[in-house]
């Protein structure tokens, strides 16, 4: 039995080698765990070819939610982590999973909803007021519900209103448990409000009757950080290549590449790397 399993794995490995040599040239690579919001916006397909050309290193992007990306990196399944929930990132470094955290870039979150704005959030001064208004009118709200960075920010906004959304879940508050794009599709289908990062929103094609109704509050600031996974815990981690990648991202070249990425003529992310690691 064990021999059969062994043969199977061997066959699979051989097939895998055949497939790789057929599809891509042998090139050193690193695995980057990142979020769907960054990947879906098209940022990576804009900047990674530039890095690849400059360094000869290919970057394999696995795009999942922030929570899952961190779990991947903790288990040693990625060399670099690029996410947007600062407290989680700092915890990741403090626990010894990551080497150093660098600020990379930012954009902001916006609240989108039905164009006729039944909860009248467009008149709100603060994001918390907008959320309060949605809950008071019991307007339908689509929540990611997947422990992502976006979800965590959304939860903190409800908390600031002293609202326990777990009690209203299933009524006007709908946890979809999906990525940003899927949540937007659902929000478009239900004509619901939702919280979304500007990058995903700008590149999203199925907006239906949804539009941006609230933006600009500093609480909706969305900072992205980048961290090299520590090789101390996982010796196979390609620390050297990861270091080159992060070095390039926070260099002038990398930062310019980020600002040069535009959707409809507008930059989606604002680079703000500092070469000195924060903390």
């Amino acid at each position: 039995m064990m021999r059969t399993v062994g043969i199977l794995f061997l066959t699979a490995a051989l097939l895998g080698i055949g497939g790789k040599s057929a599809s891509a040239q042998p090139m050193p690579y690193i695995t980057l765990a990142s979020t769907t919001s960054t990947d879906n916006s098209g940022l990576f397909s804009h900047i990674l070819p530039l890095f690849e050309a400059a360094s000869g290193i290919s970057v394999r992007v696995v795009a999942v939610g922030t929570g899952q990306a961190i779990r991947l990196a903790e288990r040693g399944d990625a060399d670099v982590l690029l996410v947007h929930h600062r407290p989680s990132e700092e915890k990741f470094v403090a626990q010894g999973y990551g080497l150093k955290r660098y600020n990379l870039m930012f954009n902001d979150f916006v609240i989108v909803g039905p164009a006729d704005d039944p909860a009248e959030i467009a008149r709100a001064a603060k994001a918390t007021e907008a959320f309060m208004s949605i809950s008071e009118r019991r307007a339908v709200f689509a929540s990611r519900g997947d422990n992502s960075g976006t979800h965590k920010l959304e939860l903190s906004l409800w908390e600031k209103n002293q609202l326990d959304v777990s009690k209203v879940s299933g009524t006007w508050y709908r946890e979809v448990g999906a990525g940003m794009g899927a949540t937007l599709n659902i929000a478009a289908g239900m004509n619901a409000y939702t919280l979304v990062d500007r990058a995903t929103w700008s590149s999203f094609k199925n907006k239906a009757a949804l539009k941006i109704l609230f933006q600009g509050d500093s609480i909706l600031f969305n900072q992205y950080g980048v961290i090299a996974v520590s090789p101390r815990r996982h010796p196979h981690i390609k620390a050297d290549l990861a270091d080159q990648f992060i070095g390039w991202l926070i260099s002038d070249k990398g930062q310019r590449a980020i600002v040069n990425f535009t959707i409809a003529g507008q930059s989606v992310f604002t680079p703000n790397a500092s070469k000195i690691p924060l903390r």
Binding site: A182, A188, F204, K205
Partner: peptide, 9 residues
Amino acid sequence: ALETSKGNL
């Protein structure tokens, strides 16, 4: 799945 999540139905 990816194109769906980008809204490119």
